[in-house]
Amino acid sequence: MEALFHQIFAGISNGVIYASIGLALVMIHQATHHINFAQGEMATFSTFIAWALVNSGWPYWGAFFATVAVSFLGGLLIQRTILKPVEKAPVLTNVIVFVGLLVIFNAVAGMIFDHTIKSFPSPFPKDTGIATQYFSAHQFGSVAVMLVVLAALYAFFRFTPIGLAMRAAAQNPDSAKLVGVRVSWMLGVGWGLAAAIGAVAGMMVAPIVFLDPNMMSGILLYGFAAALLGGIDNAWGAVIGGFIVGILENLLGAYVIGTELKLTVALILIVGTLTLKPDGLFGKAVVTRV
């Protein structure tokens, strides 16, 4: 029984990471109807920046917020320079750009920071009162950090004029232009936010899985599964999907298929969702008049 609880709690703390990567995917998908395959590698690169800052003597939280800010600007810059020219191009063009970004970020991370596996510090002290036998302090802390991020995002989209403009631009770009919203910049801000969320997720997961240029490639798959399972158009769905994927992955890994085949869970969920319920658990069916 104790082992079962342990697996579930570990699943929750993984799930919150998948939820945030899934959320980053959903954000870009809502605005552009594309899946950013480079989301994971961008997050890894951000984590390397944080690692470099910490290693050069920055305090952890200073490095943390600097990394989030740099990632936001980086995401914005990528959208403005690389994706804006292909904004109106066919989907396949965009997919190729995403794959290109993925390869570039992966290679550049390896080039600058090399491929040896690095340990990444956790900001949460090892022995505190909140750590229990089920939940390590880092797991507890990363869940808390991700929940703060989710709450901040919710508040941003719900209560700020820019958040409202972004929702409008994602939903009805033509009409958004007619009220003066600079739609193309809203996409840029969306990319910036997605990159910033990815950076937080990367920094939270790195102490557990260790840092190397391929750190996020598996996690991106889980995040993708989370987004699809929840419904690729539904931000809340992605969050709930993340927790479901995290818990399922841990339980199946521990009791059914073994830890080596855990990633299969994500793939099965992706294929299963796409064949059985393509709109996901909470997504709206998309109907197009032809």
Partner: peptide, 25 residues
């Protein structure tokens, strides 16, 4: 100001949010 063909409603947003968007600039 433009009242477009097809009305340009932001269908998933509330009525009040639609009005706020009108004053976005």
């Amino acid at each position: 100001g433009h009242v477009p063909d097809g009305r340009g409603t932001f269908t998933a947003l509330s009525v009040e949010e639609n009005l706020k968007l009108g004053a976005y600039v």
